[in-house]
Amino acid sequence: MLRSRFFKTSLGFLILYLVLTACQSGIPKNALVLSHEAVENRQLQTRVFQTHDENFLLSAGAAVLQDSGFQLDEVEPRLGVIVASRDRDVMDTGEVLLSLCLAFLGVQRPIAHKQKVLASLVTKPIGDKRTAVRITFQHMVWSTDNLLIKNECLNQPEIFEEFFVKLSKSVFLVAQGI
């Protein structure tokens, strides 16, 4: 009897300890280690332009971000940096219907409601005549219950292809003074 009580108390403490240590679990082991995909991602996120004029490329980049509905949050031309973000409503009728159907079956599925996309554009001179433009994106998505359901990098190649097509056009338009 006494032994069983001791066992239950110990088990209780063990569970409590595991819960508390799980809450305190620190930074993931590889969070600051270069991944195998780092080089591939860099190529995807970068285009090189045949100009040494960083400010010209920054202006063209800012214009593309504005064309895409982004607000510029931070600009540091001396380091070739533009930081921008965009908030948007991502409520989708199809997704709402699917979630309602699943709810009837007793399956809870969060409905995406708000999205914040963050972008940082960085230019870097390469030698005297070329400049690299690199852009990275992340997004956060909140559900209708205001829970954060997505918090991640955006690395789909199509996003970067679309951005750099627009940037090439913008470079041309800025050069024409449009």
Binding site: A31, N41, E76, L79, V81, A119, S120, V122, T136, Q138
Partner: peptide
Amino acid sequence: QDLGFVIDKANESLGTISGTKR
């Protein structure tokens, strides 16, 4: 950027850069 961060702020005069990885 290689480590997956998005830059939040940068200031050359102060020599500071802040970023976030999600």
